[in-house]
Every structure is written in C-alpha cells, then in structure tokens.
Design a protein around this nucleic acid. Structure first.
Lengths: 335, 335
DNA sequence: TCCGCTTTGGTAAACGTTTTCCCAAACGAC
DNA sequence: GTCGTTTGGGAAAACGTTTACCAAAGCGGA
C-alpha cells in the first residue's frame, strides 16, 4: 500500500509517483494518468509521518486551552481547527485544566510530535516551558496575554474598551455602586481586566463610589458563590460586571437562590457572549468577544512566523469587543 | 539534536541510546548514566514521527464528534483525551458540524496520519467511509449507535431505561399528556430514542393519551422554536421530554417567551445532564448520561481491538443512565 | 548538423528512529 | 581449564517518503 506498489503498478519510479501526487514538477499527462489510476487501484494514501520526516514539516499545530469545558473554548477551537485544516494543517488539542504539571507534559508531547507552532490560551505558562519551545524555534501565539519576545505573537483583547462599554452602559442606566468579579487574580489576564475596570473611574469616583472587586474563578460555581459576598458588601452594589459569562450565569442563579431577582435587584453583565447567554432567564447582557477573530488571528500569526522563519519581533494583534444589551440589566430599583 | 548527537556525546552507539530511552533491554548502569546526562545536555527529545515510521505504531487516536459546540461533547472529549494521554496516546480531534463532506475529509486525514483507532460520536457515517477504515484494519468505536461488524465496537446507551425513568417520573407526578422532542429523525440514534419513548406506552395508553412527537435538531434554537408547535397541539401536553439538554433549555426559554412559566404551565425534562443544566431557571430535571463512562468505554474498546489485532467480533458495551430530578418538573397545574 | 536549453524520467541519498543480527566479554559449572 | 550461557554493546537494515543529482530526449536557432 506504499508508494512503491503504486510505482510498480504504473510502471514508473517512486519519484514520478511522488511528483504526480504533490504536483511539484511537471509530469507528462499520459504518465500522470497511469499513476493516478494505479493510486486508485491500490487505494494509496500517502504516509504523513514519512513525509514529515524527510521534508521536516509536520503540518501539525498545537492548541493549548485551559478548560475545554468552558463554552468559550469550543467555539475558539472550532474556529482554529477550521482555518488550520483549510490550510492543510492538523491540530493537536490539549486542555490543561489549569494544571501546571499537565501543561508541562502537554508541551513535551507537542515537541515530540514536532508541531510547527503552538497557540496558547491559558493564562499562565511557565517561562521554562516557553523557552523549551522558542529554543526549538517553534513559533508561539498567545491569545489574551503572553510575554513579548521574538517568535512570540500576542493576540490581545482590548479589555479597556470592553469593560468601559459595560461600565458606561450601567452608568447611563443610573447605577452608581458597581462591583466587578474578576477571574483568579493569580492570572495576569485577570489582573489586567481588573485594572481595566478600575481605569473607568476617576479619582473622585473611586473615593465616592467605592467600586467593589471580588475574586472569582471563571466558573459557574464561582459566580454562584460570589453572590453571598456581593450582598454582604456595605452599600450593596446595584450592578455587577463579571469577567466571563460562566461567572455571570452563576451569579444570575445565585441571585435567584437568595430570593432576589435580576435585573430588578441587581443588574448583571457578562463577558464573552457565549451562545447560551441569550437563552438565560433573563437573557444575559454581555460584552461580546469574537472567538472566530481570536482563532483566526492566532492562526495567521503562527503561519506568518512559520513562513518567514526569520524571527519576527513579537507582534501584537489587537481584538475589539462589543456590548450586547439584553435583559439582565436595567435601571436600578429604587429601594 | 537527534539520537546521533546523544550517542556521540555519550561515546556509545545509537542503539544503546535507543535502548536506554525505551528501557527495552538492560543497559549497564554506568553507560545508562552517561547516556541520560548526554540527553539532558543536548536537550534530546525523541522524534515521534521517525519512531512511528519504523515501529509501525503512531500512538495516535482519532475522535470524531458532530458538534464540539454542544456542551455535551467537550466533557466527552476531555474524558477521552485524559485516558488516552495517560496510556501514551495522542488524540486527533475533529468536529464535523454534521457535514458529510467534512466527515469524509476528516477520515481521509486520519488515515494519512495513520491513527491506530477512531472513536466516533456523530450519528451518521457513510458505509464507504467505514469501509475505508476497516479495510485498513483500523479499529472503530461507535458511541451511541453504529453498525455491527468485526473490529467495530458499539458503546450503546440504554435509551429504553433512560426514557422510561423520565416517563415514569412524569406519570407519578400526575401527567397524562406527554410530548417528546426528538433529534433530527434522519439520524438513527434519534429514531432509537423516539422508539424508546413510544415503548413506554401500552396500546391502550397510546390510543388514549396520544403522546406527541416533534422533530428537533438538538440545538437551543430548535428547542425554542418547538414550543410554538407544542402549544398548538390539541389537548396541550402538560410535560415534554427533550432528547438532549440543549433542546430542553431552548424549550424553557421558549415557554417563557410565550408568557408562560415552567414547570407551572409545562414540565420539562432534558437528556444528558450537562453541567450547566443545574444553573438554569428553573434548574433542569434531566436524565444523566455519563460522558466519562462513554469516553472510557470507547477508549478501552479501541485498545482491546488494537492489542489483539485479531478481529474481535463487534462488541457491545452498554451504558446506563440516571434520572436527576430538579426544578423543571412538577405536578401539572389544574387548569 | 550541432549546440545549448528545457522538459521529464530515474537513481539513490537522506530523514531519525527501532530492531535484528552478530560478537565479545564475563560468568558459572564441571 | 574448558565449555555453554548469559549479558551488554555495535553495525546496519529497515520504515515510506522527498529531493538532489543525473541523463536522455526534444527542440529551436545558427
């Protein structure tokens, strides 16, 4: 079933078969036809491994995410896979579940498989692991936030405007006492978003309104549990912005569990706009972040780095967001 | 950075390095130590492609799902990946989006990559594609429902008892007029579930209660849209069983959009128990189907077939379900 | 006719491993 | 001391491709 059988059956050399298959050099029509029919006859499928071994190109891309279970990621994965496959690449997917040991093993496996590039969306990656990859000249694309260095691209979300849109929306509705549920503050990206939130306030406002910041964990349960804490804040906030939709959905449910109701007793804004957000009760107001864009940019950054193997000094690709207003926000209820 | 450098640096032959790394034959401690330190020194990582080429084992498994965007699948994928990686395999993931052309391309790619086995959870797979794989002696594991043949395993969910649990629950609550929203009836697995539903009724009941069956599409929107149809049925059903949670969530939302409320006006039961189900308002009563079990069984079936390469006549692994009662079901409201 | 240039086919050397022989040394039993 | 028998190491042949490199043929122009 190898190229040799095809060559024999067609009465040509293996080189000719290879050239016919890859169209890399002109082959006379008559011979090409013979080769193709021989290929069909023996059901020949090229062996990618052998091909990769000699050509030095694995046509394999790594994609590392922190939690495939978070609905944000499947859409990212789908987008990435789509564009990668279209360009003739295969994707090696790994979900690290926020486990550093798993992350290390994952990187190791990807190196063994000789991936040509790795896209990472999992906020913390140890420098030694990054070095492991860049040391082998494997391009890296960090989605969200990563270090700046040659051969490393950053697809960075403009949190400033995203969070600003949310805060503005709430202010216009008349909210003054706002809260923000951040992701795990051990993560740089979470700190960045917190900072973006605080940036929306002037010195005076910060002093007067005392915006509250809680630490969440990007999960449904985290959001649910945060509600208790939220309600215990002196001068209870009338609106809360969550750093992702999962947290917001948890908050929605937590508010209900306390016998309250959103948005009457508290307005809730999410971040991401996962598809399910519009199916919540009430439908979730949220800041949309296009997974398609993220995936496409990451892929293109990788490809750019792969093609010109000269070290492109860490490029930055900015991604914009958009506020989607639905039912989970309203003017604050006069108490 | 290859095995040759290591051999030179350690002053041994490549064979010795290979043996040390793989522990396949005893190597004297002194030499092994030299080899290991040489490996660390040059940062040697074995090339999986070369290894696969000569050993004939790619240590690659394919996993084909229909829609990674449905929250059911990420948990399945995670489970499969976990157990596969633990056993030293890598997973090639593909989401076909119900597109037959994509499915064909996917299978082709997997053959090119020389996967050692493929797990499939995407109800329709053309026979020619199945033949493409079995013809190359690549074991297949169908999750949900697949053809019976040598080298093909079936991980089949016991829908009978699953649906029975749901129907029983509703009957005990006092419901008589039930409806069922099936998946796309073009899919065999959807037809199987519909059949399981009908099987819960005696001849007499079928005549008297006229259980309604609608066709959905396993999506949020499908569930949402089905509500209109549901309400138009003469002798409006007081409870509906959905063939997956996404549909049920759509229904919940649709009921609300009609100005009605669940479970007061209609009880809703889902199928799968995706994590988010408990965060709905009301929390979704559903039939739990363990993704973990599905994934593990599929993997083990594959491994069993890979190890003894003798054709194991199509084995069947049954999977059981369990009803999880939450807030979306209650006694019917007396009108 | 002859000279170069282009086109097209073949030969064989890689690619980085594993693995089959083969061989030498060490060991133990008698 | 001799003779199996183990033990541990090396040389080299695979694995299935791609791709220099080479050679023959065809062709246009002088």
């Amino acid at each position: 079933m190898g190229i040799r059988e095809v060559a024999n059956k067609a009465g040509v050399s293996v080189a000719t078969v290879s050239r016919t298959v890859n169209g890399v050099r002109s082959v006379s029509p008559a011979i090409a036809a013979r080769v193709w029919s021989a290929i069909r006859e023996v059901g020949y499928v090229p062996n990618t491994q052998a091909r990769a071994l000699v050509s030095g190109r694995s046509r394999l891309l790594g994609l590392i995410v922190s939690d495939i279970t978070n609905p944000f990621f499947p859409e990212l994965i789908q987008g990435f896979e789509q564009v990668a496959v279209r360009a003739g690449f295969e994707v090696l997917l790994a979900s690290t579940s926020y486990d550093p040991a798993l992350m290390a093993a994952t990187v190791r496996r990807m190196i063994e498989r000789k991936v040509e590039g790795v896209a990472v969306m999992t906020s913390e990656m140890e420098d030694s692991l990054i070095g492991e990859l860049t040391g082998r000249h494997i391009p890296l694309a960090f989605i969200d936030v990563g270090p700046m260095a040659p051969h490393i691209s950053n697809i960075s979300v403009n949190y400033r405007t995203g969070v600003h849109q949310a805060v503005q929306h709430l202010r216009r509705l008349g909210h003054r006492r706002l809260a923000f549920i951040a992701g795990p503050l051990a993560l740089k990206s979470a700190r960045l978003r917190r900072e973006a939130f605080l940036h929306c306030f002037t010195e005076a406002q910060l002093a007067a309104d005392r915006p509250a910041i809680l630490e969440g964990d990007h999960s449904l349960d985290g959001g649910f549990n945060a509600v208790q804490e939220l309600l215990g804040i002196p001068g209870r906030p009338t609106a809360v912005i969550c750093s992702n939709d999962l947290t917001a959905i948890g908050v929605l449910r937590g508010i209900h569990a306390e016998g309250l109701s959103a948005p009457r007793d508290m307005s809730v804004i999410g971040f991401d706009d996962i598809y399910m957000a519009q199916f919540m009760l009430p439908p979730l107001t949220t800041v949309r972040l296009s997974r398609q864009d993220l995936a496409r940019q990451a892929f293109e950054a990788l490809i750019a780095d792969i093609d010109r193997s000269a070290a492109s000094a860490g490029a930055i690709y900015p991604i914009e967001t958009r506020l989607i207003v639905r039912g989970s926000t309203s003017a604050p209820h006069p108490c």
